[in-house]
Design a protein around this nucleic acid. Structure first.
Lengths: 209, 209
DNA sequence: GATAGCGGATAGTTCCGCTATCCACTTTGG
DNA sequence: CCAAAGTGGATAGCGGAACTATCCGCTATC
């Protein structure tokens, strides 16, 4: 298959495919002559994965490049790949250093030890959590920390469901990719479900419509 | 207070404040002369809200403008404001129309009726959910739909926690804003917790570190 | 042997979230 | 009272991100 057919099958324009190759998201096709290359189903699959992570997962091209590089690494340290996938939000937060941030970090540390979670305070997810809580505190919603345990219960339930799905449904050789898909697209799924549940709860309380 | 002090208190540069005013995120200060205006704590609070929605919630400026406009509408149709807050992801999805999309819409419709959720199929959250499931199906993870009920349980639990927090902790006049904060920043909080739970579960299974 | 398509390279476009500059005009400090 | 600092308002520019367009010499195909 050459690039035109790949484009037709996936709906991704040819110049965009070239761009993804340039950026290292997609391996180049195998050259059969100086200016002819052939692509196969692995390229097609990879391209669909890229679009899903972009469109549904909201990831950025550079983040996807990192995750896919980790995914293609034959060493495959599973939780490292996941780390790359999970760090996608990390970004360049200025790391405030006010009272709220310090308090939030303390709340997170308490939560992690209370739960017995094997996670470091330096974990990007923990940092992000602390930042979110600090932002809420600055908005006068410091008491939101009181519902953290309810949130954590739900998060554990979701994580259990994810692992169970992987065990039951995914072949070993696809597990790393499955974890990436589950982590990134699963977040979109859960976010949508949460908003649906909000709509329902809100509709039950206040008026019909 | 004039713009310089507002800037100092919030850490937002003056030109950026001017930009937010131009974009309708922040109401202009009250003019005391042709080129002097005064700002108060409501401006400060609003500015912090803007930065939280931007930095932590990942919203875009135009989306924030929509949400805040709804929030400031004295008619205050609560679930409309929430709708504006929840639609933030909606964006310009091309709305595929293949077999996977149709199947995913069916799965979502089943879920909504099975749960007895008061939500329309046209709801942006439902559409987004269907798109996410369709993307997974295209990647060979159609069986992920099997864990949807686990996800939905967790989503309901989170939604209950959110409403409970609002009832207990937030004054009536702040409830609309509280719902926006909870919806948007709560998603960041949950996402971080989910990733922490993944890290923990993954660490328990595969190696130490 | 004409035509369509290709791989590879480079340059341009659009959008977004700011940031810089300018202006005429207060406010403030000495 | 006057100079320096700051202000509101307007316009223009910038840097990053994700494409998109164009061009080249070449190749597959009919």
């Amino acid at each position: 298959m050459r690039v035109g057919e790949l484009s037709r099958k996936t709906g991704v324009p040819v110049p965009t495919i070239k761009y993804y190759v340039r950026e290292g998201l997609l391996p180049p096709g195998e050259l059969t002559s100086r200016n002819q290359a052939s692509y196969d189903e692995t390229h097609e699959r990879r391209l669909r994965l890229i679009r899903a992570l972009l469109d549904v997962g909201g990831m950025r091209v550079a983040e996807i490049a990192d995750v896919l590089a980790a995914l293609d690494d034959p060493e495959r340290p599973l939780h490292k790949v996941l780390g790359a996938a999970a760090d996608r939000v990390g970004g360049a937060s200025a790391a405030y250093d006010d009272a709220e941030s310090a308090a939030a970090r303390g709340i997170v540390a308490d939560l992690v030890s209370r739960r017995g979670w094997r996670a470091q305070a330096s974990n990007p997810a923990a940092v992000e959590l602390a930042e979110a809580l600090a932002a809420m505190a600055r908005l006068g919603h410091g008491a939101f920390a009181d519902v953290l345990d309810d949130y954590a219960d739900a998060a554990e339930q979701v994580a259990r469901a994810d692992l169970g799905y992987l065990d039951r449904q995914v072949a070993v050789e696809d597990m790393v990719e499955g974890m990436v898909v589950g982590t990134v697209l699963g977040e979109a799924v859960f976010g949508a479900l949460r908003r649906l549940a909000h709509v329902d709860a809100s509709a039950r309380r206040y008026g019909e419509d």
